[in-house]
Design a binder for these strands. Structure first.
Lengths: 191, 191
DNA sequence: CTATACCTTAATACTAGGTACTAGTATTAG
DNA sequence: CTAATACTAGTACCTAGTATTAAGGTATAG
């Protein structure tokens, strides 16, 4: 951008920004960008306590390694602690900071929906299921850290249609209720 | 484990396994584990086409970096391509293999729900919103690769309640419809 | 106007975790 | 016995650094 060199303060501020956005930048590239020597970049990093490229990459990798693992394990969202196939089930979801709206710290609705739907699907005694209809209501906001306890109950079965009710409570207080009509399908996804 | 060295085949098989489970192992550690020289490990990697530690870490990092980014960018699920605040909006979600039930390749309902809810929240002209009630219906199964086109329309506003209808189509065919009642809240999450 | 402090650059020695290559030994099969 | 296969050893080189010492430049205070 600009050819003139920035004052130290500003340069360091931008350095932090830059590496936050993209931690995969070498000192050499940075020294080019800022139009200073590579030593200056290194002094800056030292002052700011920013580790070297390889460490940055390593931490991105190991941070996300476990993170991704848990996200993928989320075929079913929430941990099923008790289930009676075709009858009822109970699952628990510990909400985290990843699940919230930044501004309000309120857990995004679809995580709650996902827990409920996952449990509803798990509880019915069919190979594969599809949500047909859901009628849901959020009763009160849920915050990061809240432990959601979902109870599902198979209300009625008619043909390949399952009527499942799910209630989610936080500290004994009802936070969500949903009625799902699930449709079991064959291997080809036909109802 | 065993002090005796394994036959080459078996060692290489285990090497692959090991690095799959944990890609953060150096050649030196591997040579210790397998009780062979570091050169042997390197020959093995060369034969098997396994890159060096730093490359492995780098790819874990960058793979997951974008993956995490998109997951985190999931403040809004799907890409909003058009929006008239308070009126209507349009978003597109390209479904991927990450989103499906393994057995049937059918996209999990909560992704669809999330797209619809995200758009509904985005379209209303309020700082923060919370889903109060939703009435939804899945009309047909959606498969990995399908492009979901969601249209939201603000139906009515009453006080801090917004009635938003969302329709999702796949190749012009309706796949989902939902009616959301969204509640705007203040900074403290109160309605 | 000079002295001091700070900023920047340069240069050198050293590190981890490799690649690429050459040269060798040990073991086994035919 | 010979050839093939498996393994080990060692060297030169690379990248992206750390750590340290030294040397200039500039701005500001006295």
């Amino acid at each position: 951008m600009s050819k003139t060199t920035l004052p130290k303060r500003e340069r360091q501020r931008q350095l932090i920004e830059k590496l936050k956005k993209d931690p995969f930048i070498t000192d050499e590239e940075l020294s080019d960008d800022f139009n200073v020597s590579i030593q200056t970049v290194r002094l800056d990093r030292l002052e700011l306590g920013i580790p070297e490229l390889r460490e940055r990459i390593r931490s991105v990798a190991s941070d996300n390694y476990s993170k991704i693992k848990t996200i993928e394990a989320k075929e079913i969202i929430g941990e099923i602690v008790d289930i009676e196939l075709g009858e009822n089930g109970l699952s628990i979801l510990e909400t985290t900071n990843d699940m919230v709206f930044e501004k309000t710290q309120i857990v995004r609705g679809h995580y709650i929906f996902a827990q409920a739907e996952s449990l509803a699907i798990a509880v019915i005694d069919a190979k594969v299921a599809l949500t047909g209809v859901a009628n849901i209501k959020y009763k009160k906001p849920i915050y990061a850290g809240d432990k959601l306890v979902a109870k599902a109950h198979v209300h009625r079965v008619r043909g390949n249609k399952y009527f499942v009710w799910v209630f989610i409570r936080v500290k004994q207080e009802e936070a969500f209720r949903g009625k799902f009509i699930l449709v079991s399908v064959d291997e080809n996804g036909r109802a």
